[in-house]
Design a protein around this nucleic acid. Sequence first.
DNA 1: TATTAGCACTCGATGATGGAGAGTGCTAAA
DNA 2: TTTAGCACTCTCCATCATCGAGTGCTAATA
Lengths: 341, 341
Amino acid sequence: MLDERSKSVLLAVIQCHINSPEPVGSRAVTKKYPFGLSPATIRNIMSDLEEMGFLAQPHTSAGRVPTDLGYRYYVDTLKDNNPLINNELVSELNNKLEVIRQDINTVLDEASRMLSSLSHYIGISVSPNEATSTLSKIELIKYRENQLAVIMFTDEGIIKNKVIAIDPELSQSNLNRIAEYINAQHAGHTVEEIKEKVINDLSQDRLRCDDLISQAVRICRDVFSSSPGNVYVSGLSEVLQLPDFCDIDKIKELLRAIEDKHIILRLLDQVSDAAGTQIFIGSENPLEEMKKLSMVVSTYREGSRPIGAIAIIGPTRMNYQQAITIVASTANYITDMLSNK
Amino acid sequence: MLDERSKSVLLAVIQCHINSPEPVGSRAVTKKYPFGLSPATIRNIMSDLEEMGFLAQPHTSAGRVPTDLGYRYYVDTLKDNNPLINNELVSELNNKLEVIRQDINTVLDEASRMLSSLSHYIGISVSPNEATSTLSKIELIKYRENQLAVIMFTDEGIIKNKVIAIDPELSQSNLNRIAEYINAQHAGHTVEEIKEKVINDLSQDRLRCDDLISQAVRICRDVFSSSPGNVYVSGLSEVLQLPDFCDIDKIKELLRAIEDKHIILRLLDQVSDAAGTQIFIGSENPLEEMKKLSMVVSTYREGSRPIGAIAIIGPTRMNYQQAITIVASTANYITDMLSNK
DNA sequence: TATTAGCACTCGATGATGGAGAGTGCTAAA
DNA sequence: TTTAGCACTCTCCATCATCGAGTGCTAATA
């Protein structure tokens, strides 16, 4: 569909445009990529590419800019031709993340910072969906007169603590018995399942008999109540240095897109069913606020099940090659870390 | 030093300017505040106020804008005349924060969001300095083959978990003994003190004898290693709606000021020795990046000792009255919450 | 037939020009 | 002491001309 020469020109235009935000003209192409063709010929080719929808002109007397379709073509050739994992980068990543063998949320926080500092775009990570996480263990610790600290561990590496009010009479030893009971009953099940079970239990009368068990169920209700996942965002200041965000409205649009953690959570939840690295270019984004941005997103997995996602968000004029490498490597690293339990 | 009439005019100008960012002219003052004086007279007074340094002119044919000194005067009169705690607001705050009886970091996170949503400026909170916090209790939980989750509780309400690598041979019952030992040895001391003690212990040979104790000391070394406090910032998008941040450079400056959590941490650490609510207007700020912003900051306390700070940051043209109320009330609320252990 | 040189044309960016309007300071009258 | 009146200043905005980068088209060329 695209002859070799047109393809080279398209890629050249895209390369130029990734390097600098101005529209690229025919002369610029001949200078940087000596095809042995004159500007006039390049112009003809570019005109064809425009007709096919790969390039666009901001106005008649300007150079050309790749369209989302153009970038899509470019990204697809990238995928075909290049090993997407850059070993140098991977080892750098490993070095940086190695030190953080903490619970998954700490790792994700650090990962978002790393994504942005390596790419100079915005780095985002979201924690595993709590509802579908598998309870591995729970600990109940009385730490104030009428307050209980619940520490929840999941197979996905979540360590979460939550404070809930309790009857001051309840002793630590009874709490231990309750914890034992909960662990025996619920470990190995997802939070969702446990929640359902508890709602069921609460509606049954037999609870009234055993006070400890009824306390246990009540504690479960409070602990396993749904709470949204965490979203870690970094690199806002990095990205504002880019010439792409030179005007105030673009900045506001960007902020609208990333300020609301709920939106991001839902967005990345949506894509995290598919495995591997996905790329959304401009208008391909499902989110209205992001139709002028691009997102490279990858899931990290526990075993083979995707449990969360990390992403880089930048201008459509982003360095996809690099972004893909960074996101894919980081996701793999997190996955590996989770499997080395 | 300032006669009653000049004072009224100054306050009128400030009020006008807080309501809208444009320089205020003499006619605008007479319209909104009918002193029974003509614009010409107001002009004379404003000219005097300018000479005294309370007002400034962006250019000769513009209206006047309060200087930092002008705002300082205004804020000082506020303090003298008004009850700074607005009961309505306090009860609203209570309602919103009541639900979050979690560890202090969760509360602070929520508090920063509340500060910004109530004030429409930037809300910031910093967690207590860990080093000077008093260990209340520690729990050691083996949760993976060679990993240990340490849950640390402090008197200041910090609940912190940290994962550290351990010898896979170490059993939970031995961990319990180690935890008991650590609690017996160190509870009631500050993290700083414990750290010192541990360094001391590590240099002594007697450790070699008792393997459990030496494990305990090593765990302490890892757990009580200094880690920076948390900083919670919200309201960036709120504040970008303000006409004050209409140009790109101001936004970048603002971001520079708040992006680096370390800077904020140090800044609020500095001010958190003084009790009560402090106000830094424009150039009064110790931080270079904030010389064009204002900050209203207050400390929350454990007992009578200030342990952390919360703040509102906005343009110098901020609604100080409201900001002071919000910050002071929130700080009080957090303090109260900490004392109801 | 494909390529290229040449050229007219288009359109944004830049800078100068010239009111319009808001606000001032000054002067003189009340 | 206050105020009306007025000249003055300076920003803002629209208009206009110029410049230059880049294009599309045509005709010449390999």
